[in-house]
């Protein structure tokens, strides 16, 4: 996946974050995608950049790459089940001290704004 990771260095870092998120739910048909959409909309509203990986019935889509991770300021897990390949995020936390916010799908759908806190 060829990601456009060129950041505008003039951007106000405090206000604009690069967020990576993963959504997943038991059946993987509806809520995974609703949560992804909800996070995307909220990020837009708040002026953040976001990339959301969905782990649903179609498998992993829009996968977060190592490159994405290296550039990320915040990690959000909105999931009601275990996250696939969680270790790649944990490494970032351990090595770079990136915060992982873990929440339910419901929270991501109903109150997504509250999740974007570094």
């Amino acid at each position: 996946m060829n990601m456009n990771m060129n950041m505008n260095t003039n951007m106000n870092i405090k206000e604009s974050m690069k967020v990576v998120a993963v959504t997943a739910c038991p059946t993987g048909i509806a809520h995974t995608y609703m949560a992804a959409e909800s996070l995307t909309l909220a990020a837009k509203e708040l002026g953040h950049q976001i990339k959301v990986e969905t782990q649903g019935a179609m498998g992993v889509e829009n996968e977060i790459t190592d490159e994405d991770l290296k550039a990320a300021d915040l990690i959000i897990f909105a999931s009601d089940i275990a996250i696939d390949e969680r270790e790649r995020f944990e490494i970032q936390r351990r090595e770079r001290g990136i915060k992982i916010i873990e929440t339910s799908v419901k929270k991501a759908i109903t109150n997504p704004q509250e999740l974007f806190i570094k």
């Binding site: 048909i29 995974t32 995608y33 609703m34 959409e37 909800s38 909309l41 179609m58």
Partner: peptide
């Protein structure tokens, strides 16, 4: 089946709007 899933997932996304 992937086509169907794709449509269902996109519908789900729409509901957020």
């Amino acid at each position: 089946s992937n086509q169907h899933l794709k449509v269902l997932s996109q519908l789900s996304r729409k509901i957020i709007h």
